[in-house]
């Protein structure tokens, strides 16, 4: 750990009703304000939308944030979105952490507002705890081999191979059987045009 003084911003997303209808987001935001090293808490209606992202960026500037925690949906959807967002504001993208209070909370405890809110607070605390120990990272780049492997020579494989080859890329089209064509080649006519399959 460096001697850097942590300045964490927490953004609590309502996701319209998706989160706010179950989780008391105001309560979560109040809770977040009390967490160590948290210097700014913002509630957003939709954090991923442009206004939400702008709020993150202006908060980074205004409060000189060096860590960002976004309590919203699964990182599997919006981690790239928010990494880009904080990077545009000059923060290393690996200093952003997400707390999944939608898929793992509001959507699965819809009849337990209290339990869901307690859990959301914990998930935010967990993300804040982790954020405090995050380290800036540099992503390495590697060259790409300009060739594609297409496995299967049915209509989909043939079409993919042609598109890629027409785009200027080398293609290796692998077919298990003695000819390409796949199931399509054994069809007589195809709908909706009622024309020949081959």
């Amino acid at each position: 750990m460096s001697d850097e003084i942590l300045r964490i911003g927490v953004f609590v997303c309502e996701c319209g009703h998706n989160i706010a209808a179950t989780v008391d987001t105001e309560e979560v935001a109040r809770f977040a304000e009390e967490l160590p090293n948290v210097v700014a808490v913002v509630q957003n209606r939709y954090t991923c939308a442009d206004p939400g992202q702008q709020e993150i960026q202006s908060a980074i500037a205004e409060h000189n944030l060096n860590r960002v925690v976004i309590a919203s949906c699964t990182p599997k959807i919006h981690e790239p979105t928010f990494r880009n967002c904080v990077a545009e504001a000059g923060l290393n993208p690996y200093l952003m952490e997400m707390a999944n209070i939608r898929e793992h909370c509001s959507w699965v405890h819809m009849k337990d507002r209290e339990g869901a809110t307690v859990k959301a607070k914990d998930l935010v605390a967990s993300a804040v705890g982790r954020a405090g120990r995050l380290v800036a990272q540099d992503e390495k780049t590697f060259p790409v081999t300009d060739a594609a492997l297409v496995i299967g020579g049915g209509v989909a494989g043939i079409q993919s191979a042609l598109e890629l080859a027409d785009g200027g890329h080398q293609v290796y089209l692998i077919e298990r059987g003695p000819s390409i064509g796949g199931i399509m080649s054994a069809l007589d006519k195809t709908f909706p045009t009622m024309d020949c399959s081959i």
Partner: peptide, 12 residues
Amino acid sequence: HPRIELLVNSEV
């Protein structure tokens, strides 16, 4: 196609 190498009877 000049840029497609076709391998039939082949498996990955």
